[in-house]
Each structure stands twice: as C-alpha cells, then as structure tokens.
Amino acid sequence: MYIIDSPSQDAYFNIALEEYLLYKYPTQDIFLLYVNAPSIIVGKFQNTLAEINLDYVEKQNIKVVRRMSGGGAVYHDLGNLNFSFHTLLGGNDFMDFSKFTEPVIRLLNELEVPAKLEGRNDLLVDGKKFSGNAKLARNGKMIQHGTILFNSEMSVLGDALKVNPLKFVDKAVKSNRARVTNLAPYLPEGMITDDLKELLIEEMLDLNEGAVIYQLTEEDKKGVEQLIEEKYKTWDWNFGFSPKYNFKNAKKIPAGFIEVHLDVERGGQIEKAKIFGDFFASKPIEEFEEMLVGKNHDINELNAFFKTIDLTGYFGKVTKDEIIELFK
C-alpha cells in the first residue's frame, strides 16, 4: 500500500489527484490524505447550482469542484481532514462502506470518541454526523473517500450550502442536510487536524504490512496540473455537467416585478426562456428570450452577454447587475 499525504491544500489539485492516481497506479492499493482550503465538493450526479449559495460562494472565494463519485455536496476547509482508499474492485462489496471506515472508527474509539457507522455511509458521534463517505468504481478499481469534520467553520458550511429550493426543479441527487458536528470537542485538548492525520498514517502503517509512505514526484504533480486545466478547473465539468433542470427566480426591483423561467439542458445550455412581469419596455421581451437560447446558464457568460445589449430596451430603467441577479 502507498500512503500519500498530499502536499497541496488546493481542492482542484486534490480532487484531480484522486483521478490521476486511479490511472497511474491501476493495481496499487493507496491511502490518500488531504486537507482543502475552503471549497465545496459536489457529487458527480448533482446539479451544482442547486446545491450552493452562489453569491456567498463567489464573495468568499470558495472553490466549487465536482468529484468523480456520487453522493451529496460537502464543504471542506482547513478544519476538515479527507481520506481516500483506492483498491482493486475484486471481491469487495461495492455497497459496503464499513471496511474502509473501520480504521477511522477504531482510531477514534482508541481516543475515547464514541464514533460509529450509521445508515449506509455516515459516521456519527452522539447522533450527529462528522463524516460522509462516497464511492466509485472505475478502471477495475474502487475508491471510497470520506471527510472528517475536525474543527470546520460551521457557520460558513451552513451559508455556503444554503440555497433557495424553489429556484430549481430537477431529478438530480439532492444532498441530505443532516445534523453535523466537529470532532475537536471530543478529542484531547490542543489536538489539531495534522495530529489526527499523523495518527491515521501510523494506524495504516501498522495495519498494512509492507505499506510505505509515497511522495508525489514532479512528474506526478505535472500530470495532476494537466488534469486540472483540462477538466477540474473548467465550468463544463463543475457546472455544465449538471443534469437537465428547470430554473425559476423572481425579484421586485425599481423598474417593476420580473420573473425568469429557464429550461436548461444537460451541459448547462439554455433551451427555453420565458420572462414575466409588470415592467414597461420599448422592445418585445420575446426578442430577449430568443437571444438567451443557446447561451450557457453561466453567470460569467451571461454577464458578458448583457454588457453587449441595451437591457433598458427590454426592461425599462434597469441596471445590468439587477438583471444578472435574476439568473442566479
């Protein structure tokens, strides 16, 4: 087994690293640990915009990254330790999460934390969730990864994942907002995330005969960076990959009440747009609706587009910022 402590706190890097290792070492067992700076990691089959508070995320410079596995969206920050097991699919039961959460539970129990696996894939303490786990199978291997809330900023977690459920209608996987807690209050005073990481590394070295610490090479880092640029940093993967959905938003602004309805295809492209309201304008709103068709439901792309047209012709005395808010 290779035990890898990622040298990066960049969510793009660490989520891309999981895929890189999957193909670079197709038969090697791997235990990967990493800590991400503030970021939201979205499940593969989720509608990203329906899982995040976009305004808050942008203002706080929180990265949004889609992972390869299913499940719900999770918030990562420096008070959050993430672990990832890579093994041959072989005879492992894909739906059994206990095998690869057992080392975590055993270590925490040794530290007198009453942690246990409950339900299908959650680790709880005193009835509150501190770890969610997800899986994927690809290239003959299975990856199970999870997050451990150690001393995460709970208020940021709540704000970053707080969305208006009335804006989106789709069949994408929804995140389960269970009651969550940090582990720090249950652990010895003064213990930090890095201490828990080191204990987990020691645990895995003891449990796995022949396990070695593996340092990423420059070739590895370049391979991960290439994957970041080609996939994990792109709007197409993080937002556009979302399943088909319907979007609705309405606001009262000085020019009047405006309500926006969008039908968005998989890939993030607007298929149909309808706009209602009590505003006054000199140009037919149908013309504006038609111009939206074929555009991506990407705030940056729409923002750039709105700069090129006279919005007052369609909505009366409005600003670009007032209109762009309707599409968030």
Rank of each mutant, 00 (worst) to 15 (best):
6 S>R: 03
6 S>N: 04
7 P>T: 15
12 Y>R: 07
12 Y>V: 05
13 F>M: 09
21 L>E: 06
21 L>R: 06
23 Y>K: 12
32 L>P: 01
32 L>T: 03
33 L>W: 01
36 N>C: 05
42 V>F: 05
43 G>A: 07
47 N>R: 03
48 T>N: 07
52 I>R: 02
53 N>T: 09
55 D>Y: 10
60 Q>Y: 08
63 K>I: 00
64 V>C: 03
66 R>P: 03
67 R>H: 01
68 M>N: 12
85 F>N: 12
90 G>N: 15
91 G>H: 12
91 G>S: 13
92 N>C: 10
95 M>W: 14
96 D>C: 11
96 D>S: 15
100 F>K: 02
100 F>V: 04
104 V>W: 02
105 I>H: 05
105 I>T: 07
108 L>R: 06
108 L>K: 08
121 N>Y: 07
123 L>R: 07
124 L>G: 00
126 D>L: 00
126 D>C: 10
128 K>T: 05
132 G>W: 03
137 A>H: 13
139 N>K: 14
141 K>H: 09
142 M>S: 09
143 I>A: 06
147 T>R: 07
151 N>W: 00
153 E>K: 12
154 M>I: 14
154 M>D: 10
154 M>P: 08
154 M>G: 12
154 M>A: 09
158 G>T: 12
158 G>S: 15
159 D>L: 14
160 A>R: 03
160 A>S: 08
161 L>C: 08
162 K>T: 02
164 N>M: 01
165 P>D: 04
166 L>F: 10
167 K>F: 04
169 V>C: 07
178 A>G: 00
179 R>K: 13
182 N>Y: 00
186 Y>L: 03
187 L>K: 04
195 D>W: 09
198 E>S: 14
199 L>W: 05
204 M>N: 13
206 D>M: 13
206 D>F: 13
208 N>C: 13
210 G>Q: 08
216 L>H: 10
217 T>M: 13
217 T>L: 13
218 E>D: 15
219 E>H: 13
219 E>L: 15
222 K>L: 12
225 E>L: 12
227 L>M: 12
234 T>C: 01
236 D>W: 12
236 D>H: 14
238 N>Y: 06
240 G>A: 02
240 G>S: 01
246 N>D: 10
246 N>A: 07
247 F>R: 01
248 K>I: 03
249 N>Y: 10
251 K>E: 09
253 I>F: 08
254 P>R: 09
258 I>K: 05
260 V>K: 04
266 R>L: 00
267 G>T: 01
267 G>R: 02
270 I>T: 03
277 G>T: 04
293 V>C: 05
295 K>V: 11
297 H>W: 11
298 D>P: 02
304 A>W: 05
309 I>C: 10
312 T>A: 00
312 T>H: 00
314 Y>D: 03
316 G>Y: 09
317 K>N: 13
319 T>G: 12
324 I>N: 06
326 L>W: 10
